[in-house]
Design a protein around this nucleic acid. Structure first.
Lengths: 248, 248
DNA sequence: GCTTCGATCAAACGTTCGTTTTAATTGTAG
DNA sequence: CTACAATTAAAACGAACGTTTGATCGAAGC
C-alpha cells in the first residue's frame, strides 16, 4: 500500500513539476535535472516511470487531454441531443468548445491556468514528435466540431469555416498562453486591463472566467464576419459574390 | 572591397540560415553547428560577427523589424495626415497594422513567409531575453496603434480594446506561424482549404496575399463584436450595460 | 526467514552544447 | 615587398544534456 502510494505519488509529483516547468520555460529549455529537482525525486525516476523526456511530455498532456476531449465531445452530444436533429447555433458550438477549455482554467485539479498556458504554448512548438502527438490527440474532437460548424453554417464555404476555426484557435491560444505576451505587447498588467487587481495565485481562476467572457464575443464576431471578396486575386477559381454576409 | 563583400556575405549567409532554421526548429533546438553548417561558414563565425547565439537571434529580428516598424508607423502617419485630424476607421488601422506585416510575406527580400512564420512562433517563446527584446522592439509601434484605436473607438472601454488587440495578434500569429498547426488541427492541406493548389516554394507569396484577405474580415468582425456582459461576475467593479454594442 | 520484485538511489555514461583560443589566411595600405 | 588589421579556419574547452547502470531498500509471497 505504501508501495503503491509512493509510486503514484512520485509519478504525479513529476507530472506536476514538468507541467509547470514546461509551461514556464518550454520543452527544450527545461532539463530533466530541473524537473526532478523541483519534484524532489531522483533523476532516474523520469526514465524509470515514463521512459524518456518525450514520453514525459506526452503523458503530461494525456493526463489532461483525456478529460478535455471527453468533456468536449459530451458537450456537443448534449447540445445535439436537445436540439433533436436541428442545426446548432454557432454560439452554442463555440461555447461548448472554448467554454469547456476555459473551465479547465478555473479548476486546479484539472491543471488550472498552468495547463492552459502550457497547451497554448506547446501548440506552436515546432518539434516533430509534438506535432504528431497533438494531431493524434486532437483530430477526432476537431473533426466533430468542424462538422457541427458545417451544418450550423450551411451557406458559408467550408474552407472559410476551417480558416476561421484556425483563427479562433489562435486567438484563444495567445489569450491563454500569453499573460506575459500581453504585457510585452501592451506594456501593462493584465489586472490593469481587467480593471481590477489580480492576485498571481488565486486570481488565476478568476482570470480564466473573465477571459472566457471577453473572448467569446470576439470569436463569435469573427466567425460571423462578412466573407472575403478576393477581388484582386486572379488565381481564385470561383469568384465569391462580393461582400456576402456569413449567414449566421 | 572583396574584404567588405566577404564580411557582409558571411554575415548575411548566417542570418539567412539562422532565420530559416529558427523558424523550422525553434531557438533552443537549433544548434550553432547546424546554422554554420547550413550557411557553409566556420563555426566560430557566429561568435565573431554577432558575439553569441542570443545576439544572433536578436540580429535576425532587428534586420526585419527595422523595416516593419518604420513601415507601420509611416502607414499610420499617412492615414492620419489624409484624415486631417478626424478619427480613423478601425478597418484602416487594422489594414495599416496587419496589412503591412502580411505584405512582408509577399516580398522575399523582406524575409517572406519564412520571417513571418518565425515571428509568429518566436512571440510565444518563453525565454526571458526574447520577451525582453520584443518588448523593446514592439513597444513604440504598438503604443501608437493602441492610441489610434482608442480615438477611433471612443465609446469602447480602453481595456476592451487592448484585449481585442491581443486577440487579433494571436489570431494573426497562429495564422501565419501555423501552416503545420493548421494541418494538425484540421487534418488537411492549406492548398485544399484555399480551394487551389499551393506550391511550397513560389506559392508562399500568394498564400500571404490570400491569408491577408481572409484574416482581415475576421479581425474586423471580432473587433466590432458586442461587448461582454459580465453578468455573473460579482468581482467586476463597474457593471457594463448589458449587451452593449461596440460603437464602430 | 528467505526470496522476489518493483521502486529509489548515487554515480557514471557518451554526446552535444555554446564558446574560446590560437594559428593561418586574406586583402590592403605604406 | 612588407606590415597590418580583419576575417576565416581548426581544435579544444568545460559544462550541461538525456540516458543507463548496478547497488540498495522495503514490503509482499510461499
Amino acid at each position: 500500500m505504501r508501495d503503491l502510494k509512493a509510486n503514484t505519488d512520485t509519478r504525479e509529483r513529476i507530472l506536476d513539476a514538468a507541467e509547470r516547468l514546461f509551461m514556464e520555460n518550454g520543452y527544450e529549455a527545461t532539463s530533466m535535472r530541473t524537473i526532478t529537482g523541483a519534484a524532489e525525486v531522483n533523476l532516474a525516476a523520469v526514465n524509470y516511470h515514463f521512459g524518456s523526456k518525450e514520453a514525459l511530455l506526452r503523458e503530461v498532456f494525456r493526463r489532461r487531454l483525456a478529460w478535455l476531449n471527453r468533456e468536449r465531445l459530451q458537450a456537443l452530444d448534449r447540445l445535439e441531443q436537445q436540439a433533436g436533429g436541428a442545426p446548432l447555433k454557432p454560439s452554442q458550438i463555440l461555447e461548448a468548445f472554448f467554454g469547456t477549455l476555459l473551465r479547465m482554467g478555473e479548476d486546479e485539479s484539472l491543471g488550472g491556468m498552468t495547463f492552459l498556458r502550457l497547451l497554448g504554448r506547446t501548440l506552436t512548438e515546432p518539434a516533430e514528435f509534438i506535432r504528431t502527438f497533438f494531431a493524434g490527440e486532437y483530430a477526432q474532437v476537431i473533426d466533430r466540431y468542424k462538422l457541427a460548424l458545417f451544418s450550423a453554417l450551411p451557406d458559408v464555404p467550408k474552407a472559410e469555416i476551417v480558416w476561421r476555426l484556425h483563427f479562433m484557435l489562435g486567438a484563444m491560444s495567445y489569450a491563454i498562453a500569453g499573460t506575459d505576451v500581453l504585457q510585452v505587447v501592451t506594456g501593462c498588467e493584465v489586472g490593469d486591463l481587467a480593471g481590477e487587481a489580480v492576485a498571481d495565485d488565486a486570481g488565476d481562476t478568476a482570470l480564466a472566467r473573465r477571459l472566457a467572457q471577453r473572448l467569446m464575443p470576439f470569436l463569435l464576431g469573427g466567425l460571423r464576419a462578412p466573407l472575403p471578396q478576393f477581388q484582386d486575386l486572379p488565381t481564385t477559381r470561383a469568384a465569391h459574390s462580393g461582400g456576402q454576409q456569413a449567414q449566421i
